[in-house]
Write a protein that binds this DNA or RNA. Structure first.
Lengths: 338, 338
DNA sequence: ATCAGTAATATTAACGATCACATTATTTTT
DNA sequence: AAAAATAATGTGATCGTTAATATTACTGAT
């Protein structure tokens, strides 16, 4: 039960604690023979270093806190894998916390991470953030912070996200290239930056092509199938001349919901209505009409965010920057291709 | 940068460190007015407790180590969500490590967790474990350990897994009830306990129904689509009288691969060959013929494992036990059901 | 033989908190 | 009024490690 300490090894060998410490952490100024004896004793007694004590004196934990709003959705696990890959190689551990999209819980998580004296924090915020004081406090304490995917700008932290605006513009342009003129957008909550960016990209694609932006074709869907279904249902109540011929959904689940509404109405995809999503959900290629979408390179986001964080922690590249990862357009059939 | 400590608050107010400590951790024997002053000062100075120091003196970190072989696959994220739910409510944090199915990396992860003095460890082992000494060492140190999904038995640790044998028997029985007599099994690596259990369940269902176990109908597929595809291809080279009329795959990906091989041969599912999987992959309901499978209640596994671990840590229910969670059979069409 | 220089090891303090016990002040009991 | 109990606060040691500095022992140069 009681763990072996340096002190015990020292007493066993009639040495001082310091010599044992030096020997085990490979410092110089230790006699070769003494070092051998110490290593042997450490091994024999089953010594395990105590990083808690080490952290206390060195003021460094080699631990990074991660705050995600969701774990189940396939995007975040993939990001975490990217984070893990980089941090593992740099010798850091991960404390994973899950806010469950709950601001209160996120706040708790962050203050626990602070109390555990993590060397840095990676955050993807909850959807309903209103109060930035928690994040600002971290910055004030000079605790390195990097946001990913769901960012908070202009508070002095770095942020890694995908190029939502450009990607959204790109995929909308793709529909326009197919000749569609009446295009609807199923938007997410505008409290979340990605929703705003995707909406902006959608609008700018229309503008660039001198197409009219019709407000009644921009409807709220949220991020889930149910919302997409409802939003599409609403669009389908329009008289058929006013109805959109193509739809840009804020993400794939919303698109799936919309597709269901379209089928229910007895319409065909893409013949009657074309649709594109965003996120390349694992189900996207398996839909009756496979969904054209934007793949978010989650693994790369995780890698970039954790790399930036470690750079800050190790004092290499401390100035806040906005890192943008390009999304890939994945062409399938729902847009009208092939 | 320099964080505020109890000592600073104490000096500020002309009190001793101990009084401040007591006031902030809600102990008795502190004057109401004094407590108020201390709280105010702590707040004003931006005091954040240092759990590292606390952990050192209390010999307790309120941290649990989790070792998973994979993060991307939807099963583990779901388990982690279950773990997180329980540990969050019990006031513990999670250090997540990822072995990437690599025994060396798993070993490193475990010894780092040990060094960080986690209060307990949850492990799902790598596929190729040969050396149990790492786990045995944990037990010897009396560090609470609970295995989940991929277990190591008979070394004195608890284990939470799904009832693989019974579930496999159940789903095989389901095929037998459809009247199939020639049933094949695509098995996984027998080094992994779940493969052995599923094979055993398959065999015992046949035995219970006096059906012959034909060795050439039990083929190696591994856990991925490619292996399933190859294995099925091999079965399909049999002359059609010797060919199986139904297939029990070790998991869903293997079943997907097999389904592809069946379609390629121009055969129909379930009319020509029925097939069932195991794991209820997110893609299972979306296949051209939706796949009948066993749902593994990942969230429940996570909850049960972490609950057991916390019980051990808090000395409530320390004796090792084998906890079995029932899998649910999810009936779709690939088995021949309507 | 003396001095400087280096190698090997020891000592002390510190990291930030808590525990057990000691002290002082205040209230209650008899 | 003295003794006992209780409340409020303080002291010193401790958790396991490392940094900085001190001591001791040995080597080689003059």
């Amino acid at each position: 039960m009681k763990r072996v300490t340096l002190k015990q090894i020292a007493e066993e060998l009639g040495l001082s604690v310091m010599t044992v410490s030096r020997a085990l952490s490979n410092h110089s100024h230790v006699n070769g023979e003494t070092r051998r004896r110490i290593l042997a004793a450490a091994n024999r007694l089953g010594y395990r270093p105590n990083y808690i004590a080490k952290s206390l004196v060195l003021q460094k934990t080699y631990t990074i806190g991660v705050v995600v709003p969701e774990i189940t959705h396939s995007f975040f696990p993939e990001v975490i894998r990217g984070i893990e890959e980089v941090t593992y190689n740099a010798g850091y551990q991960l404390i994973l916390t899950h806010s469950a999209e709950n601001a209160e819980r996120e706040k708790n998580a962050i203050s626990t991470l602070e109390a555990k004296r993590v060397d840095g924090v990676l955050i993807s915020t909850v959807q309903t953030v209103r109060d930035y004081s928690v994040y600002k406090e971290l910055i004030r304490l000079k605790l390195p912070v990097v946001f990913f995917d769901r960012c908070v700008y202009n508070i002095g932290a770095s942020c890694v996200s995908i190029n939502d605006r450009e990607s959204s513009q790109l995929i909308t342009q793709h529909l326009i290239d197919h000749g569609y003129k009446k295009i609807a957008h199923l938007k997410g909550s505008l409290r979340v930056s990605i929703s705003r960016a995707r909406l902006a990209g959608f609008k700018s694609a229309l503008l660039m092509n001198n197409l009219e932006i019709e407000d009644h074709l921009i409807v709220n869907a949220g991020f889930h199938e149910k919302g997409g279904y409802k939003a599409m249902k609403q669009l389908l109540t329009l008289p058929s001349v006013k109805r959109p011929r193509a739809v840009v959904a804020v993400n794939d689940p919303a698109a799936f919901g919309a597709m269901e509404a379209i089928y229910e109405k007895g319409l065909k995809i893409p013949e009657d209505i074309a649709i594109v999503g965003f996120s390349d959900d694992i189900r996207a290629p398996l839909m009756p009409t496979p969904l054209t979408t934007i793949r978010q390179p989650a693994y790369e986001i995780g890698k970039a965010a954790s790399q930036k964080l470690i750079d800050i922690i190790e004092d290499r590249n401390i100035k806040p920057e906005k890192i943008v990862i390009d999304g890939d357009i994945i062409i399938r059939k729902s847009c009208g291709c092939r």
